[in-house]
Amino acid sequence: MRALLIVNPKATTTSARSRDVLAGALRSELDLELGYTRRRGHAGHLARQAAEDGLELVVALGGDGTVNEVVNGLMAGPAETRPALAVVPGGSTNVFVRALGLPKEWSEATGVLLQALREGRSRTIGLGLADDRYFTFCAGLGLDAAVTRRVERARRKGRRSTPGLYLRSTLGEYFFERHPAELTLELPDDPDEERLASIIVQNTAPWTFLGDRPVHPSPDASFDLGLDVMALRVLHVPSTMRTVAQILATDGEPRGRQVLRHHDLAAFTVTSSTPQAFQLDGDYLGEREQVRFAAVPEALRVIC
């Protein structure tokens, strides 16, 4: 099987030695080529070129941002020539890999991947689509995305991406910035509209991880279904703290008068009267006044 290993050399939890070990292990099962990313967006170009060259598999070594780029590169071509995807975790959180049930350590995940290749094991997953960009596990507008923006600014200043950084960024954004209810969720079969302060869209569960703890705004979200939405009508301290406790609970789920939830949606639109922070798969993508979302069923074959 001809394959391309796309490596993000700046991936948080890998080294040159571990990348060499991974490449050697994969070569025992694959006719392997290597591609190293040089800039943001380059992973998508490499994946798209792999599909055009007729390769059968693309392996991504990196975090969720690298995986998102690779997925969008693969989805740019026709379905009949689209390579399968395999992922080896190399980032700080690795939500997509862990949502697939794979180990979070690159060495253990490599072992699972090699066994799956030997057994011909794979699954086909659905993706989310936000305007013209695909996402694997989540999107967000409002508070969620504003926290991502804070984290990325801190990382550009040399801070490490840790659960502590996310927690401090969340508290700083929540208590020191205003997030009025200016978002509107528009459903095709529901003419009623209401103002919302923050929206989280999930293509699978969990939404993210806080260290080893999964965070579940929409615990029933699945790669095999449509998109799930959890929104907050307001961000008042008592109701918001209660919702945070619910999504962190092992068997809890968000509920209450300030919580709006939808399950297994095929399509919807989020609009805002003012530009809102927007993120996909944990990458901040700027501010938007409108985003059209759609579920894309059985979009991509994944080796796992």
Score class of each variant (00 low, 15 high):
L4G: 12
P9Y: 05
D20F: 07
L22P: 02
L32T: 00
L32I: 03
E33T: 10
E33S: 07
L34P: 01
R40H: 12
H42E: 01
H42Y: 05
A43M: 02
L46W: 01
L46R: 05
A50F: 00
A51F: 00
D53K: 12
L57Q: 09
V59L: 08
D64K: 11
G65S: 06
N72A: 12
G73Y: 06
P78D: 06
A79F: 02
E80F: 03
A84T: 03
A86F: 01
V88S: 03
N94R: 08
N94H: 10
V95F: 06
L100E: 06
L100G: 04
L102M: 14
K104W: 13
W106T: 08
T110D: 08
G111V: 05
L114W: 06
L127C: 07
F135P: 07
G140E: 02
L141C: 04
G142C: 02
T148W: 00
V151Q: 03
E152Q: 14
E152S: 11
R153M: 11
R156K: 13
R156L: 12
K157N: 11
R160N: 10
S161F: 05
G164S: 09
G164L: 13
L165R: 08
T170V: 09
L171H: 08
R178G: 07
L187Q: 05
P188T: 06
E194S: 02
E194Q: 01
L196Y: 01
A197S: 13
V201C: 08
P206H: 04
P206L: 03
W207Q: 09
L210E: 01
G211D: 08
D212M: 10
D212F: 07
R213T: 15
S218V: 15
S218G: 11
P219C: 10
P219L: 12
D224C: 03
V237F: 12
P238F: 04
S239D: 14
M241R: 06
M241L: 15
L248R: 01
G252E: 03
E253I: 05
P254Y: 09
P254N: 02
H263N: 07
V270G: 04
T271V: 14
S273T: 15
S273D: 15
T274C: 12
P275E: 11
Q276V: 13
Q276K: 14
Q279C: 02
L280P: 09
D281W: 05
D281M: 10
G282H: 03
E287C: 00
Q290I: 05
